[in-house]
């Protein structure tokens, strides 16, 4: 009664597809069918934010969206932030510089929430960064370096777009 269905979508700018049962959520589909294991699964019930990806421009919890619902959508995962074997993206580099990760498990979700925020609200201030990150849990860092990294990137992007 739950045969696999074909799901075609765009991931990180590339047309991709696979088969999955309708009960498969997007995070499992990305990891197991498309082998994009950068997206992490923490709580799997929408609380921790580790699985956050961007779907059609919005940050979403990939454990709360069925893969079949993402058919035809544009999905960006953490793998989309930097070219394979290329330099880190600006958010990733800022995380490294600011020590904004320790175990790193939550980091893909943090990065995708911040990537969506920086794209939608380039003028976001610290309060807005904190509000956006309230949906992402980190048990190592205490958040301060994550917020510092985010503010670095927002400021650098504003400076470069002003010139």
């Amino acid at each position: 009664m739950s045969d696999a269905v074909r799901i075609d979508l765009t991931v990180n700018g590339r047309a991709m597809g696979g088969a999955a049962e309708p009960r498969t959520h997007l995070a499992d589909f990305l990891r197991q069918e498309l082998r994009l294991t950068g997206t992490h699964l923490g709580c799997e019930h929408g609380v921790c934010g580790a699985c956050t990806v961007i779907v059609d421009g919005r940050p979403v919890r990939a454990c709360l969206l069925l893969a079949v619902q993402a058919a035809g959508c544009e999905v960006t995962t953490v793998e989309g932030l930097a070219a394979l074997d290329g330099p880190l993206g600006d958010l990733q580099a800022a995380f490294r510089r600011r020590h904004a990760l320790q175990c790193g498990f939550c980091t893909p979700g943090m990065l995708m929430t911040l990537a969506a925020l920086a794209a939608a609200q380039p003028d976001a201030d610290e309060a807005e960064v904190r509000a956006a990150l309230s949906g992402n849990l980190c048990r190592c860092t205490g958040y301060a370096p994550i917020i510092a990294a985010a503010l670095d990137v927002l400021e650098a992007r504003r400076a470069s777009s002003a010139t």
Binding site: M1, P22, H45, R61, C63, L64, L65, L66
Partner: peptide
């Protein structure tokens, strides 16, 4: 019925709900 899924899908994941059919309104 599946709307935004932000309450139903956690219930499905945790198997608090186990419907035979899901009707997606999206």
């Amino acid at each position: 019925v599946l709307a935004g899924g932000q309450s139903l899908v956690p219930m499905l994941n945790m198997r608090y709900a186990a419907p035979d059919h899901v009707i997606d309104l999206n």
